[in-house]
Write a protein that binds this DNA or RNA. Structure first.
Length: 422
RNA sequence: GGUGAGGUGGAUGAGUGGCUGAAAUCAACGGUUUGCUAAACCGUCGUACGUCCUUAAAGAUGUACCGAGGGUUCGAAUCCCUCCCUCACCGCCA
């Protein structure tokens, strides 16, 4: 959620930024400012009458003590009249605040200056490529075939137990999964991130805090009986640790990493993209999250990008880094870098990480602030990224490292996997 | 799931209708003292939204907030209702 003051200070600029995100209703900026003016006026009116009520009530108390009953009674009548007015103002104040809020949450975050203009994924800008694409033989197999051949993941049984998109990992397939989880977590904690294992379901307030509600409600599994949502990413529970918090400057930066399964309904997606592990309803991911001082957030973003890149390098996978264009960015993000690995048999780039700076968009909603050493309280900035999402790494590892006599495990994973090849 | 006790500022904890946005203690911060540390002493020490003043900061002032929401009352942290959470015991159970 944007801060009203940001819009107020420069409405024209805000509209231009919204256009980069292909936001259809720039006029909402004006609506918000008007509503905010109205809010201030109404609050002033409310406050002044409430103030009269408060002082009259005090006076009544004094009069009663002195035994001046009649005067007290007449004051009570005054208060009754004020109360009618104050109720009106209060109702309209609540109404205006709700309108203001409902409008404000419709606005996406404003993109940073370097965000490329563009609408579709094709217009994202490749800022870096790394690693070496393998030379596979002509009969190289996509991961869904390899998975069958080596008996690593059973999709049919997953469907039997739950439904499609809930893979069942098995034997060495399960071991590889566990190896990656442990390796990634170690890599992250070695860089100073504190490890968390969060709850895998969250309440409504948390889903709201990180912005999944209200707009992405349909993407989450909802446990209606208890009002909980299965988390689509560890970002949700972990970032909410700092909901309604005022940190001290010395406590920053907060660096957290968390493993969690992620549950996504992926309503409406189908086709070749969903084959094998490319897109599933339950997958494993290790997330990194930072909460930092505003003036440092873009440096931290670079740091996080470098961190993910370093991790990918140790896996010896060919990758590229994209700066997302305005039209492809997430709602809450000011700047996003996507990491894609090249899955050599499918001959496709697969997204395995998305690292974003949300600036104050998320923390404004979460009310996560910090008090500077000078004593000023202001919003923190939040950032997060995957480090890393497993299924597509899994797919790329299998495809890229396949040989006539087995699948090679990258050196970095071998101690965790317990063998050099499958 | 049942029964009981609770939820007050960073922490502990007082407060059963007006003098309480909230005692006291601790922590924290600033200062005095000190060779350094400690102790002692003095001071500061909630958040949000307004208004005034100001270039701004600071300051002054109003309103709201004592788990959440509603109610009673001229007036609610305090009384009533609903919900949430925590703790203890019982039941069930990995």
């Amino acid at each position: 959620m944007l801060q009203v003051n940001v819009l107020r200070n420069n409405p024209q600029w805000a509209k231009e930024k919204l256009a980069v995100k292909h936001f259809k209703q720039p006029e909402l900026v004006d609506t918000i400012i008007a509503l905010d003016d109205e809010r201030k006026k109404t609050q002033a009116a409310f406050d002044s009458i409430q103030s009269k009520i408060n002082s009259a009530s005090k006076e009544i108390g004094n009069l009663m003590k002195q035994g001046k009953k009649e005067e007290a009674e007449s004051l009570k009548n005054d208060v009754a009249a004020y109360k009618l007015q104050v109720t009106d103002f209060n109702d309209s104040l609540l109404n205006i605040e709700k309108q203001l809020h409902d409008t404000l949450v419709q606005l996406p975050n404003l993109p940073a200056d370097i965000v490329p203009v563009g609408k579709t994924p094709e217009e994202n800008v490749v800022v870096k490529e790394g690693g070496v694409k393998p030379n596979l033989s002509a009969n190289a197999k996509p991961h869904w075939d390899l998975i069958k051949e080596y008996d690593l993941v059973d999709f049919e049984l997953g469907s039997k137990i739950t439904g499609s998109g809930f893979p069942l990992y098995k034997g060495k397939g399960a071991r590889l999964q566990r190896a990656m989880i442990e390796y990634f977590l170690n890599f992250n904690t070695a860089a100073g991130y504190t490890e968390y294992i969060p709850p895998f379901m969250v309440n409504e307030a948390s889903a709201y805090g990180t912005g999944q509600l209200p707009d992405k409600e349909g993407q989450m599994y909802h446990v209606t009986e208890d009002g909980f949502y299965l988390i689509p990413t560890a970002e949700v529970p972990v970032t909410n640790i700092y909901r309604d918090t005022i940190l001290k400057e010395d406590e920053l930066p907060i660096k957290m990493t968390a493993y969690s399964p992620c549950f996504r309904r992926e309503a409406g997606s189908f086709g070749k993209d969903v084959r094998g592990l490319n897109r599933v309803h339950q997958f494993e991911k290790i997330e990194i999250i930072q909460i930092v001082e505003p003036q440092k957030s873009y440096d931290v973003l670079e740091e996080m990008v470098a961190h993910v890149e370093a991790l990918l390098n140790t896996l010896q996978l060919p990758y590229r880094v994209l700066r997302l264009c305005g039209g492809d960015m997430g709602f809450a993000s000011a700047l996003t870098y996507d990491f894609e690995v090249y899955s050599a048999a499918q001959q496709r780039w697969l997204e395995v990480s998305s690292v974003s700076n949300f600036e104050g968009f998320q923390t404004n909603r979460l009310k996560c602030r910090y008090k500077s050493n000078e004593g000023k309280t202001q919003l923190t900035h939040s950032l997060n990224g995957s480090s890393l999402a497993l299924p597509r790494i899994y797919a790329a590892l299998l495809e890229n490292n396949q040989t006539e006599n087995g699948i090679n495990i990258p050196k970095a994973l071998q101690p965790y996997f317990g063998a050099e090849k499958i």
